[in-house]
């Protein structure tokens, strides 16, 4: 029977089987709560009748997801906002910091890629700044900027800049001399050469850097929002942990994964759009 299916169908079937089996094991592994009627008097007196905090079964998480996703944008005060609003805040911060990083990294990467002197001059700074965990900047950012929202955006900026900068420089430096010669023999000025020859030639490498950056930015925003608080999916996870609402914690973890995947697939699409075969 399996022989008639395509490769993709077989893979999809296997994925579904793994999901179902995993969920069943999870569901079965959760110990059942004892009903209050079966408790001894002593147990009732010591609070045994209250529901025990435990990892929720997948059925509860699914119910939570249904409840949250059916009304994602409700706003009932500072600590009770819909998942859509929280994710919206996070995406807004990620995109703002990320776009600012792109505006700096791509032109600077062009410069570094075109000029040996610029490459050698910038390289020591890049090598020292790049390995710094973005969250290490947070105290300094909070002190200087004096605004938690802007500090979170700055942390996204500083973590997204390096892969884009390095990949742009690498892509620009690696543009084949033949293509540059084509531009030269056609008397193209520096700007037209940059936009009509070097940019399309380096685009696949640049987009790869942008894709790595957006992935890192999405990883970092969760941690940054746990620190700065207020809004965002990272704050939401931490807030639900403080509420001991593990169902919401698990649900939001899944949402972080889904949004991260969507951001990544947008760049995967972009990557295919600019790819070329030699």
């Amino acid at each position: 029977m399996l022989d008639n299916l395509t490769l993709n169908q077989r893979a999809a079937l296997l994925s579904v089987v793994m999901l179902v089996v995993g969920l069943l094991i999870w569901e079965a592994a959760i110990p059942a709560q004892k009903a209050a009627g079966e408790l001894t008097e002593y147990e009732r007196l010591t609070g045994g009748g209250a529901p025990k905090a435990g990892v929720p079964p997948p059925s509860q998480v699914l119910a939570k997801a249904w409840e949250q996703l059916s009304n994602p944008f409700y706003d009932a005060g500072p600590n009770d906002k819909g998942i859509g609003i929280q994710i919206g805040y996070s995406i807004y911060r990620v995109l703002t910091g990320y776009l600012m990083a792109a505006l700096v990294a791509i032109p600077l990467g062009f410069l570094i890629g075109m000029s040996q002197v610029a490459y050698k001059a910038f390289n020591p700074f890049i090598q020292v700044l790049r390995p710094i965990s973005p969250l290490a900047w947070m105290p300094l950012a909070l002190f200087i900027i004096q605004d938690s929202e802007a500090s979170a955006i700055f942390v996204i900026f500083i973590c997204s800049i390096w892969p884009m900068l390095i990949n742009t420089a690498f892509g620009v430096a690696g543009v084949r001399q033949d293509w540059v010669n084509v531009a030269r023999t056609h008397e193209l000025g520096p700007f037209r050469t940059a936009f009509t020859v070097i940019l399309p030639a380096a685009a696949p490498t640049i987009i790869t850097g942008m894709r790595i950056s957006i992935g890192i930015a999405w990883l970092v925003i969760v941690a940054a929002e746990m620190l700065v608080g207020g809004t965002g999916i990272g704050y939401y996870v931490w807030n639900e942990w403080n509420n001991l609402d593990l169902t919401s914690v698990i649900f939001s973890i899944l949402m972080i994964g889904v949004v991260g995947m969507l951001l990544d697939s947008a760049f995967a699409y972009l990557q295919r759009a600019v790819a070329y075969a030699e």
Partner: peptide
């Protein structure tokens, strides 16, 4: 001096822009 549109070049490796 320098490259010019008055002097066209056909390179051995074609040098077409692949995109």
């Amino acid at each position: 001096s320098g490259p010019s549109l008055d002097r066209g070049v056909v390179f051995q490796n074609y040098s077409l822009l692949p995109w």
